[in-house]
Design a protein around this nucleic acid. Structure first.
Lengths: 205, 205
DNA sequence: ATTGAATGCGAGCAAAGATTCGCATTACTG
DNA sequence: CAGTAATGCGAATCTTTGCTCGCATTCAAT
């Protein structure tokens, strides 16, 4: 950020710009969200944009920071009600939440997630992944006695990415003949079965 | 394609261009593979490129067609040796194959898969997905008596995308502390557990 | 060898989009 | 109400990249 805003109006502008970046991306897609689009949506000129952000990338970065906080808030809100149920219910609830999350803000998060690799250095799915990781860790801690996972890191990586990426892919198919709840059910079943099996098999090893 | 090549040299050039497209993408990434890069790599001028391809998109399309054939060949080769084993072994073998496939040609396939959403209209992961789908279908047919899946379409969608996307994501993390075989093992376990569970639960429903 | 078609070339055009820069406007201070 | 700093503007510039066009070279048939 070039200048640190000292007057009210400029702080407002910074906010407006970040928000406009989100709208521009949701509207035109990441690839076609230009600085001009953003400036227009923010009701501001390009010049002013560069007064407060070094580059388009910096603007994106700022947006992602904001989204990161939002996500953290959302997770904190819902987490308690989820952790006490059995695996299948927890997973089901969690997936529904993630589903809703992805469609929030006119699909902004979905659009960002789809293009995860381009944003690459600037985490996106990584962000979601990290939060999911934390949720899973909490769940496992609370139900410690039920689970004996030998390689929790790999297991969580697989579980989280399988679900997230499958959801992203499902939501990106414009006209799938599969219904949302079919997907959620299958994923829930899969994870439940997997976690169940983790309790049984490794006891022998 | 603008002209259909009538002399030997031009046919060679078409080949060289398609191949160069692949190398350019593997080398610079999809986003930075320009027509100039491609022409240089092919040892040919941009002008000649446009003599045979209407646009950069057409060139990509041609590349994808070629890769599609390659993939089909690969699958046909390996499929017989895989289908007779139990679920866990089959899955394990299949995953190893896909893993190797993704790293082939200096990561060309991986790079394409990562950017699946941009290539979107021109299938990429879709292609892989379709082949996997076919393999799964064959497996299920051959082991028909063992499986009763009520919603095979959704189940296969989840299975295939979970594995493919997780692999892609794993391979795209530059320095993961997870080993390749840990990922394969976890995925194999998960799928095996899931398919196992499909035989048990739905019998009651 | 000649000639016309096929092929090959690469500087240069055009569009898109990021970034800058000089000037205009607004807010704060004394 | 100056005077100065902060803020805002948007046309102009720079860069990238897909693509064209006129000219040069090679091929193949007579």
């Amino acid at each position: 950020m070039r200048k640190s805003p000292k007057q009210q109006r400029s702080q407002k502008m910074v906010d407006a710009l970040i928000e406009a970046t989100g709208r521009a991306i949701a509207e035109h897609g990441l690839a076609h969200a230009s600085t001009n689009h953003i400036a227009v949506l923010a009701g501001v000129s390009v010049g002013s944009l560069y007064q407060y952000f070094d580059s388009k990338g910096a603007l994106l970065e700022a947006l992602l920071d904001r989204l990161s906080s939002d996500l953290a808030g959302l997770v904190d809100q819902r987490i308690d009600s989820l952790l006490d149920a059995d695996v299948r219910s927890t997973v089901h609830g969690l997936l529904s939440a993630v589903f809703a999350f992805m469609q929030k803000d006119e699909g902004l998060y979905l659009e960002l997630a789809r293009n995860w690799y381009q944003l690459h250095s600037m985490r996106v799915v990584d962000l979601l992944e990290r939060h999911m990781f934390e949720v899973c860790r909490l769940y496992l801690l609370r139900h410690l006695n039920q689970f004996r996972i030998q390689n929790p890191h790999a297991v969580l990586f697989v579980i989280i990415n399988s679900t997230l990426m499958t959801l992203i892919r499902y939501l990106s198919q414009p006209n799938s003949h599969l219904r949302k709840d079919e997907i959620i059910d299958c994923l829930s079943d899969m994870l439940a079965a997997y976690m169940q099996s983790l309790n049984e098999a490794p006891a022998a090893a």
